[in-house]
């Protein structure tokens, strides 16, 4: 009992990690689309921005598909809760409240990343071409992850960090596939031009192109892409991989808090993990890919609520009788 962790601290660690993962996700999607857009036909380029906003669950803004304005909105816009800068600032604010719980190296890296993104602006990065900025954000997040793994005890707090990242990632990948599901559902075998570019960019959104090619060769097909990003057990950005890691983290947390395997969080994550492990892509696509992905997102939301109710904001009555 003496080692128990304050609920507030667990909550801060979880959200710190979610926000940083989201910042990394935004920078990845934005970098890919800025690049792919150049090869698309004009109509398809416009369409790609609309899909990007859907992937990030941001309402389509009024700006007329102007890459400069969109980049501003997704990087520095303080009023956009899903801009890179606001996400990093939120991650840092969560870290600041638990500074004594994380290693000083972790704090320094997150603080440095925050200072770096705060020290520049849209005109500067647009002038120098935005990729290096977006790359810096991603590298900063990866570095933070590496520092976390090598400087913090892999105890309960570390597992809450893992849980935050995994659930954010699973949810983001599911949303991304969902947005593209009608496109992925097409039966055509022959993808040329814009269609080919779009299939490749779905993989690139998840840094999956190279890993995909190693298994399926450079022949992007909707069914295999869906299988890879949803059900592959080894690729870090696949939903299956993220849920697997989430399960490991939640089991460790349950053990550390002596709640064992009976808690709702573990039942929910276990069920989802089993489905992703045993379901076959052809069966899923034969019924409805869209429904399947919507279900994954719903289950992620359930797990999030269950974590909150089990460990953070549980009712006092239940805690007193146990």
């Amino acid at each position: 009992m003496a080692e128990a962790m304050l609920s507030r601290v667990a909550d801060n660690l979880y959200w710190m990690s979610r926000y940083l993962e989201r910042a990394e996700h935004i920078s990845r999607l934005l970098a890919v689309n800025l690049n792919t857009m150049l090869d698309y036909s004009p109509a398809r380029a416009d369409h790609s921005w609309a899909r990007l906003f859907e992937c990030l669950q941001i309402p389509q803004p009024d700006v007329e598909n102007d890459p400069y304005a969109i980049t501003q909105l997704l990087t520095f816009e303080p009023d956009n809760a899903n801009s890179i800068v606001t996400c990093i600032a939120s991650a840092r604010e969560n870290a600041r409240h638990v500074r004594e719980q994380i290693s000083s190296e972790m704090w320094e890296q997150l603080n440095l990343l925050y200072l770096q993104v705060r020290s520049t602006d849209i005109d500067t990065i647009w002038g120098e071409e935005p990729y290096s900025f977006l790359r810096m954000v991603r590298d900063g997040a990866y570095l933070f992850q590496g520092i976390t793994d090598s400087t913090m005890s892999h105890g309960e707090g570390w597992h809450f960090i893992q849980a935050g990242r995994c659930i954010e990632r699973a949810n983001m990948t599911a949303t991304l596939l969902d947005v593209h599901s009608s496109f992925l559902d097409t039966r055509s075998e022959d993808h040329v031009g814009d269609d080919y570019l779009e299939l490749v960019s779905i993989l690139k959104f998840c840094t999956a192109f190279e890993a995909y090619c190693k298994i399926y060769t450079a022949d992007p097909q909707p069914a295999t892409i869906t299988e890879f990003l949803m059900l592959n057990a080894q690729f870090p950005h696949s939903i299956c991989f993220a849920i697997d890691q989430l399960q490991v983290a939640l089991n460790a947390i349950a053990e550390a808090t002596e709640k064992h395997k009976v808690v709702r969080t573990n039942r929910l994550v276990g069920r989802l993990r089993a489905a992703l492990g045993f379901d076959q892509v052809d069966e899923i696509m034969a019924s409805s890919l869209r429904d399947y992905l919507a279900d994954i997102q719903r289950q992620c939301a359930q797990i999030h609520v269950a974590i909150h109710q089990t460990y953070i904001a549980y009712p006092i009555e239940s805690a007193l009788t146990s």
């Binding site: 962790m5 304050l6 609920s7 550390a256 002596e258």
Partner: peptide
């Protein structure tokens, strides 16, 4: 020892508890 804020503590039946992930302590 634990560093707590007011919102980490609660009082029930005149007993003070802190809210931890493992339950009320």
């Amino acid at each position: 020892i634990k560093l707590v804020e007011g919102r980490d503590l609660l009082v029930h039946d005149n007993v003070v508890y802190m809210r931890t992930t493992a339950g009320l302590q």
